[in-house]
């Protein structure tokens, strides 16, 4: 179905192309429209989120790199960037490792209180964020974790685990258990079995769970606003104060840089995938 069969009627052809290029095109445009908006605005010569007449007439005075300059020279932004890259990976590692272990445990055939446990583990995703933030704020203050690096990391890790659990258990559902039995019958101990047999099979789930966990922490503003203090000011926090205290397209410049980085990363991943397919002798499907 990926291509239109040769015997398709005119009606089918029209529908096929309408669907593919008009309907899906529109939806995909909807998805990236905000991104398309922010990129030109980040080169705005003025300090507002506004397409100025100068910009619309494409006159060079309407554009400037000053917001990029601001981002790279302003110590607040640099500190926030650094903090984000200190907090998000730590939270990701914590939630991915604990989450993967738990997902493996949950996919065993005999787990007492499975439903209840699952509900607890998924809860950080379903509890409205503002409740989580306030609750953790009161509680962490009492145990001295509020305003500390680890406080924020722990909170973000908790918010990220449901995604890891969901993605990893999903890959485990299709997992053929006879494979581990086969490995065991051939004398592999459970640890070897895990790393040689199970791990390679669930790795896609782990990776996508880790990505979600990373984004959760990297883009999280409500909890960090409550739990963090000056030392843990992350990019979203800096953006939030930016939006509240002085509108500055610097946050758009930051976003544009992030988009550029992620396009590069995603493309590199895609290229690597194609390369490995070619090396393994698979024809690109």
């Amino acid at each position: 179905m990926s291509a239109l069969p040769a015997y398709a009627s005119t009606g089918q052809r029209i529908w096929h192309y309408t669907f593919r290029y008009v309907i899906c095109g529109f939806i995909l445009f909807f998805l990236i429209a905000p991104i398309l908006t922010i990129i030109p605005l980040s080169f705005n010569a003025e300090n507002f989120f506004t397409f100025t007449p100068a910009m619309l007439s494409l006159s060079p005075e309407g554009y400037s790199l000053k917001h990029y300059q601001d981002f790279f020279t302003n110590s607040d932004w640099q500190q926030a960037l650094k903090n984000s890259f200190l907090i998000a990976p730590a939270a990701t590692i914590l939630s991915t490792s604990l989450g993967t272990l738990a997902a493996i445990g949950l996919s065993q055939s005999h787990v007492p209180f499975r439903r209840a446990i699952m509900a607890i583990l998924i809860s950080p995703m379903i509890v409205p964020l503002i409740i989580s933030a306030a609750g953790m704020y009161f509680f962490y203050s009492r145990i001295g974790l509020q305003g500390t690096y680890w406080g924020v990391v722990l909170a973000h890790a908790a918010l990220g685990t449901p995604f890891v659990i969901i993605t990893v258990t999903a890959t485990m559902v299709g997992f053929d258990r006879s494979l581990t039995r086969a490995a065991a019958s051939m004398g592999a101990d459970p640890v070897t079995t895990f790393f040689k047999v199970q791990m390679p099979l669930i790795i896609p789930g782990v990776v996508s769970g880790a990505l979600f966990a990373f984004i959760t922490s990297f883009d999280e503003v409500v909890v960090v606003l409550f739990l963090g203090s000056a030392g843990q000011k992350t990019l979203p926090w800096q953006m939030f104060t930016g939006l509240r205290e002085q509108i500055s397209p610097t946050i758009l410049a930051v976003a544009t840089i992030m988009v550029a980085i992620s396009i590069v990363l995603l493309s590199v991943l895609e290229m690597l995938r194609r390369r490995s397919e070619r090396l393994r002798g698979l024809s690109p499907s």
């Binding site: 704020y137 009161f138 203050s141 009492r142 509020q146 305003g147 409550f226 203090s229 000011k233 104060t241």
Partner: peptide, 23 residues
């Protein structure tokens, strides 16, 4: 150290006071 939490100052001070941990 500059913190930028004035917007949340009242609730945060209340919670800090409750937890007896004013930072």
């Amino acid at each position: 150290i500059n913190d930028e939490s004035s917007n949340e100052a009242v609730p945060k001070l209340r919670a800090m006071n409750e937890a007896d941990n004013v930072t």
